[in-house]
Nucleic acid binder design. Structure first.
Lengths: 203, 203
DNA sequence: CGGTAACCTGAGGGCACCGTCAACTTCCGG
DNA sequence: CCGGAAGTTGACGGTGCCCTCAGGTTACCG
């Protein structure tokens, strides 16, 4: 059962307005501001998206695909380390460009979506390829990517208004710690898949 | 003009209650919960601390001194790098132990206080000593400490409920990126003192 | 002991946001 | 063109927190 034509149009307007408002004000804006910006009543917003999470999911659905494209490009690069760096840099660029996406990543990381499985698999490949080439330190696991993203997320939050490129410096330090020759023994094992899932579930 | 005896007692109760509540629930708890926990009315809380920031300052005033002690201990260590690591580790331990302090560091870092000047000077010495010994990378500045703190802050926030020691692993990666031999050219200059100040002022 | 200034109290108005729903409007198939 | 299903509207009650202030209470000085 498809949506009626006007309902479909309103839905698109809402997503578009939400995209803009989330991007500039973050994920916690009042919903009625989004409705107003979409030229639609607050009731309609709740009709289409009974919960804030559903609206967020609709707005950022395409991001998962973007991440997939980034990983594919990374895997196409000759140098595995360069591919890894490209991947991380591009994802961080997305964070810096959109306060809403930054908020999202700070809480739930890539968020489970249809493409999530594919993105997860490709990310794994990017990481493993760099590790097996001996460029990425051997004790780095996929779940450690969370640390990288979280870290940049906070720096973006803090510095966006003062020096929007500061995260690049921060990422420079991080990457230098991930190269194989830099590795020193770590005091604690990585988070398990299960723990990562639980962290994300706790919103 | 000193406070009346009962007022002084209430003040202490409030700070004590706030310390506990901030620690377990973060800096954004409702103020009336603190008043209730202190066995005092909300009006009294506002009498003593007209603004939330003043209460926060009172609660965490002693932390500045703790940081000073940590730096002094760090400077007493024979190995400059070990001193630097000790300093960073201890500060991060404080973040992990207190959700309120973690929140505070995420926003304003050490917060300007009386001891701030001394703490700032000692921190500078810890950093410079490690750098001049050739252990800490040469392009690391004091303002880059913000990245370290911010990063851990976020990881603590995300993982405190699932794996309270996860930050130690994250810090391991970070420290490996700060050793001199790990250094690769950074794409962007450090934040200036002025920029750091502005970041902190924006709450 | 007063008497006064300092202090405490907690009900209440304000505000911002949430989420609902009965009445109204629009679409669309027949 | 019409009837009903689908969709829209926005006022409204609910919630949680903020902050104030008039009236009652307590400490302290002489």
């Amino acid at each position: 059962m498809a949506l009626r034509k006007d309902a479909q149009r309103n839905r698109e307007r809402l997503v578009e307005a939400a995209r803009a408002v989330f991007a500039e004000r973050g994920l916690d804006v009042a919903l009625d501001e989004i409705a107003r910006r979409a030229g639609v009543s607050i009731g309609t917003l709740y009709n289409r998206f009974p919960t804030r999470a559903e609206l967020v999911r609709a707005v950022f659905a395409d991001r998962a695909e973007t991440v997939v494209r980034i990983t594919e490009h990374a895997l196409g690069m000759a140098d595995p380390w360069a591919g890894f760096v490209h991947f991380v840099e591009q994802v961080c660029r997305m964070l810096a460009a959109d306060r809403g996406y930054n908020d999202l990543a700070a809480r739930a990381l890539p968020q489970a979506t249809p493409q999530h499985a594919r993105g997860h698999e490709l990310m794994t490949r990017v990481v493993e390829r760099a590790r097996e080439a001996g460029a990425l330190r051997a004790d780095f696991t996929l779940s450690d990517m969370a640390f990288v993203i979280w870290a940049i997320t906070r720096t973006v939050e803090a510095t966006a208004g003062v020096e929007p490129d500061a995260w690049r410096r921060h990422l420079g330090f991080i990457l230098d710690g991930l190269r194989a020759p830099a590795a020193h023994p770590l005091p604690v094992p990585p988070l398990t898949e299960d723990q990562v899932a639980r962290v994300m579930r706790d919103c």
